[in-house]
Simulated scan of single mutants.
Amino acid sequence: MGTLKLRNCTIWDVHYWRQTKGGDAIAKPGEEGTIDFGATYTLGVKRVNVSPDGKNYRSAVNQNGIYYAVWDAGKQELEILSEHEANLYPWSSDNAYLTKWIKRLPDWMSALNGEHSLNNYSIPGTHDSGTQHTGDGIAHTQNFGISAQLEDGIRFLDIRLDGVTEFDQELVVKHGCIFCFLSFGEVLDSCKAFLNAHSGETIIMLVNASGCLYNNIESRFKSYLQEDAYKDLFYLGESMPTLNQVRGKVVLFRRFKIDDTSVLGVDLSEGWEDNKTFSLTTPTPANVKFEIEDQYKDRDTHVKLQAVKDALNNTIANSNDNIMHITFNSIAGGHGHTPYEYAWGGGGVDPIMNPSLESFLIEKSGDRRFGAVMLDYYNNQGSQNGIVEALVRSNDGLLL
């Protein structure tokens, strides 16, 4: 006797049973049902009180197996997937709970052809990546720490730094003037540990001064690069590298200014416009071109969502433009709403940014380049990683 598990990934109640042997039950959306099997049977499923019911069967199921019920909108029927099949199945809003059980994404870059420049890929990122421990409020934009983000497929980090005091050499992460209870060393330790375990990956790190007390972070930042623990961690070139050139490295995109003319990463210290969609070209001789949407003060989500869609449509339409596109799907807290409410809803926010972005990515699904997409609360509160999944899967045309 074995116990088969059926995980309902759909947004409907799913009735399931052993054909000819009964044992039927209902699995609620996002819940796991069980059924005792004494031998190999055929498993049946259908939607409850929905037309069409999408009835379907899978024969010769493993009596101790784990299976996933998903809705195939094209066939208008339920599918019963093995665990391997479920890991490859595209996310959709009908199957919102698929991401509850999907594999984490620590090695997705390792499967890509690395001969292309980083601006040729779709890359999920987080806005103000180090804010897990700020507490609820306008400074809180992430529910998970750096290590968890990397394991979940995030490959672009947005890090804002400041000194603890004017004379202290330690740098800490801040959101504006709000301390995030995270040191820069801890960020680097998380990145190093991840890359040591997943040497085929790379991490882009956009680094800026927090804009609070001690904006001149240059000397302190450089001191970290001289430490034995971190001296080989970064790619510090001024040109956009290929993925193969930076596997196992952190690629520095630098927004803070430095006092000399030395090369210290891809230089975005001049030309970053406030609350705009804009173009930026780094200094000669690198001349790296960027298109950036960062309309973080557009708290009318109709306006902000249109800006995001326009930016992504531009990225798709110009897939061979050799430009690094960065799109921020995030909105700063204000006008009575927190970043979480803008991202996932609450307080009457409509449209809601992250579900709307998911729907857009699904609509545009296929081998497309979306560039870097920066997110608040990328996977809600751990229950949904659909945006990251969609971005990662859009790179399938670049698989080895």
Rank of each mutant, 00 (worst) to 15 (best):
S117H: 03
G371M: 07
S210G: 11
K28Q: 15
F256D: 00
F156G: 03
E358Q: 13
T40C: 08
T301E: 02
E341N: 04
K100C: 07
T141C: 14
L195S: 05
Y296T: 03
S219G: 12
N215K: 06
F253M: 14
V373N: 09
I146D: 08
K364P: 12
K257Q: 07
K28V: 13
E31N: 11
N318D: 11
G125W: 01
I204E: 03
E273F: 10
G397R: 06
R255Y: 06
I178S: 13
P339E: 00
N119Q: 14
N208A: 06
R160S: 03
G130Y: 02
H140D: 13
F290R: 11
V14E: 02
E293W: 01
V70I: 05
S51Q: 08
I292V: 12
K75V: 00
S199M: 12
L264P: 07
D298I: 00
V263K: 08
H84G: 14
N354R: 09
F256W: 07
F253H: 09
A343M: 01
F290V: 09
L391G: 04
K5F: 09
G345C: 08
Q169A: 10
G347T: 12
G33Y: 09
T10I: 06
E32Y: 00
E389P: 00
N379H: 09
T277P: 01
T126F: 01
E83H: 11
N208R: 09
P351Q: 09
W272C: 06
F156N: 03
G30D: 04
Q63G: 15
S279K: 09
N87W: 02
G185A: 10
K304P: 02
S210K: 01
K297C: 05
F328L: 08
N314W: 12
H175R: 05
I352A: 01
N120R: 05
Y57E: 14
H175V: 11
M240F: 01
N119G: 11
L243R: 14
Q19L: 13
R58C: 01
